[in-house]
Simulated assay, not measured.
Amino acid sequence: MTESAQRRLARRIAGEVALSDDPGATLRKWRTDFDVSQTVLADELGVSSSVVSDYESGRRENPGIAVVQRFVDGLLAIDAERGGAHIRQYARVVSAGFESDIVLDLREYSQAIPLERFYEAAGATELVPGGADHVNGHTVINSIEAITRLSSEEFYRLYGESTDRALVFTEVTRGESPLVALRVLTPTPNAVVLHGIDPENVWEHAPALAKRDGFSLAASTKPVDELLADLRMLP
Rank of each mutant, 00 (worst) to 15 (best):
T39S: 10
R60L: 11
S110R: 13
K29E: 13
P114Q: 07
E108N: 09
Q69C: 02
A112F: 01
R28N: 06
D21A: 07
Q111L: 08
Q89I: 01
G74T: 09
G15I: 02
D21L: 07
P114R: 07
Q111H: 14
A66K: 14
A25R: 15
T32M: 11
Q38N: 06
G58A: 02
G24F: 03
T2S: 15
L104C: 02
D79R: 03
Q111F: 03
Q89T: 04
L76N: 08
D54V: 00
D73Y: 00
I65N: 10
E56V: 00
Q69W: 10
E56L: 05
Q89D: 14
R59S: 12
R117D: 14
S49L: 01
R8W: 07
D105C: 08
R60D: 01
G24Y: 01
V94W: 14
R8P: 00
V47M: 09
E99T: 12
V94P: 00
I87R: 14
A10R: 08
Q89S: 12
Y90F: 14
G84Q: 09
V67E: 13
F34V: 03
V36D: 05
G84M: 08
Q38I: 01
A14Y: 02
S50K: 10
L106Q: 15
D73K: 09
N62W: 10
A10H: 03
S110I: 08
L9Y: 05
I102Y: 11
